[in-house]
């Protein structure tokens, strides 16, 4: 555990808490892509199956359980409790266009051709593109609430911090996981346009609106 990894994990945790708070306080999931949230639940459910096969640390297990349970709660809130506020008309990204190619790639490019390893690889690849329905939705509506942009900034920063963690681990521990690094870079690159808008608009007190 190094400082980049720890801040990265805390940023990920903060993102999830921000999203849940936004929904709970406003009793609304307006502006949030339910499809991205379904993908995140799928990401956690397929990645953390090793909860049952290996124990790493109390921190590790606690975080895994937190991510799995909160992602399921988020999907429940969006599709059941606050369903009336869900903006389905703008959430039109086709999930099969992500899940099918990512599933195929996980079968072809993995560290080991075993069920758990393929599911882990699927999860890593899927996470890298899981935000696309959310970004697609924002490009259709042309704006985002400020709390939603804070959520997205924390969520995007988490993987960017993991990249620093991987650089650190490569130099000081000789650790290198090509699949995680490539997918993590792709994931971070997808956020760059948003990061730019966040820094130039939201941090200056303006609402995030996209150029037409």
């Amino acid at each position: 555990m190094n400082i980049f990894r720890l801040i990265g994990d805390m940023s990920h945790l903060l993102a999830i808490v921000l999203l849940l708070l936004k929904m709970w306080k406003t009793r609304s999931c307006a502006g949030i892509s339910g499809k991205s949230q379904i993908l995140f639940a799928l990401v956690f459910a397929t990645r953390y199956l090793d909860l049952f096969t290996a124990f790493i640390s109390a921190y590790n297990s606690t975080m895994k359980l937190f991510f799995i349970s909160t992602s399921l709660v988020t999907v429940y809130l969006m599709y059941f409790k606050f369903r009336a506020t869900y903006d389905a008309n703008h959430d039109t990204f086709r999930l099969e266009f992500l899940v099918v190619p990512v599933g195929g790639l996980a079968f072809l490019v993995n560290h080991n051709f075993s069920p758990l390893e393929i599911l882990w690889t699927f999860s890593i690849y899927l996470e890298s593109v899981a935000i696309l329905p959310q970004l697609f939705m924002m490009s259709k509506t042309g704006e985002a609430e400020t709390i939603t942009s804070h959520y997205l900034f924390a969520l995007g920063s988490y993987r960017a911090l993991y990249i620093l963690n991987w650089v650190f681990r490569y130099y000081f521990e000789g650790f290198f996981d090509l699949i995680a690094v490539v997918a993590g870079c792709v994931q971070t690159i997808l956020y760059c346009d948003f990061f730019y808008l966040y820094i130039t608009k939201v941090l200056k007190g303006k609402k995030l609106s996209l150029p037409a």
């Binding site: 090793d50 096969t53 290996a54 975080m63 895994k64 991510f67 080991n112 758990l116 963690n165 995680a180």
Partner: peptide
């Protein structure tokens, strides 16, 4: 299952 390389990251 035994072929799974243990991952310590989240």
């Amino acid at each position: 299952l035994s072929n799974f390389v243990v991952k310590d990251e989240l």
